[in-house]
């Protein structure tokens, strides 16, 4: 029994990990785009971005997930199809947008934390705007946001369990299904071990990143 539960849960973990990685892949850069939008001098850009961030941060992720999955079907354009792949895709899209908005706000704080003098010095030396961002600001911003980002990313690990609401067989849903079909509770608790290990690995990785950025101060 233990072996078969473990195998099933590992399958669920694989789904959770896939959602997690794909969400990060899309949300990390998308967050930067939204961040630039928030910081834009042009109100036609900054106002819609603020509105988006307000809506996304102001409503439950579960509601957003349900909306992304069901609204296309309701308006007669079921882009997701009926299968597992479509449901996972809907999850990744909803999660990516949601996390991108949180990341955007963290990025913004990180960029604003870099002293203005850094950008001015680079500008006077003739660096272009993109060179200033990628060569001067970016690394200093990353150093400033390691801690808030590690919080968000660890939250994302556990938020993958929300995908259950649109019947994606991720880790929690797999554990829960044993309760329904076999009437046993312990697999549910067992899922916790997987989450802990997952987060443990992330914690170590973030620790390493922090160490790597320790070579300079300021």
């Amino acid at each position: 029994m233990f072996i078969s539960v473990t195998t099933s849960l590992l399958g669920g973990l694989a789904v959770s990990v896939r959602i997690f990685l794909l969400t990060l892949l899309f949300a990390l850069p998308l967050g930067l785009v939204i961040c630039f939008g928030l910081m834009s001098r042009f109100r036609v850009i900054s106002v819609p971005c603020s509105l988006l961030v307000w809506i996304v941060r102001g409503t439950p992720l579960m509601l957003q997930l349900i909306s992304f999955f069901y609204i296309p079907g309701i308006i007669g354009q079921n882009i997701w199809g009926g299968g597992e792949a479509g449901r996972t895709a809907a999850t990744v899209v909803a999660f990516s947008l949601n996390y991108a908005c949180y990341f955007a706000v963290i990025y913004k704080g990180g960029i604003q934390g870099v002293p203005v003098g850094q950008r001015e010095a680079a500008q006077v030396l003739g660096l272009t705007r993109s060179q200033i961002f990628f060569r001067v600001t970016l690394l200093q911003m990353i150093k400033r946001i390691v801690h808030p980002m590690s919080n968000e990313i660890i939250t994302l690990v556990k938020d993958t369990s929300l995908a259950r609401i649109i019947a994606v067989y991720e880790l929690t849903f797999t554990g829960y299904s044993f309760m329904k079909s076999d009437g046993i509770v312990w697999p549910m608790f067992y899922t916790g071990v997987f989450y802990l290990l997952f987060v443990g690995i992330l914690t170590v990785l973030f620790g390493r990143l922090e160490k790597r950025l320790d070579y300079y101060q300021g």
Binding site: P115, G117, Q118, E120, A121, A122, Q123, V124, L125, G126, T128, R129, V136, L139, Q140, K143, Y216, Q217, G218
Partner: peptide, 24 residues
């Protein structure tokens, strides 16, 4: 244009009161 501005900028150099070296 951005290019003209850059050419103009390069005629001048500036040393700041607060140094502003790139820490990384």
């Amino acid at each position: 244009t951005a290019r003209q501005l850059r050419e103009s900028i390069l005629h001048f150099g500036l040393v700041f009161q607060s140094f502003n070296l790139f820490p990384q």
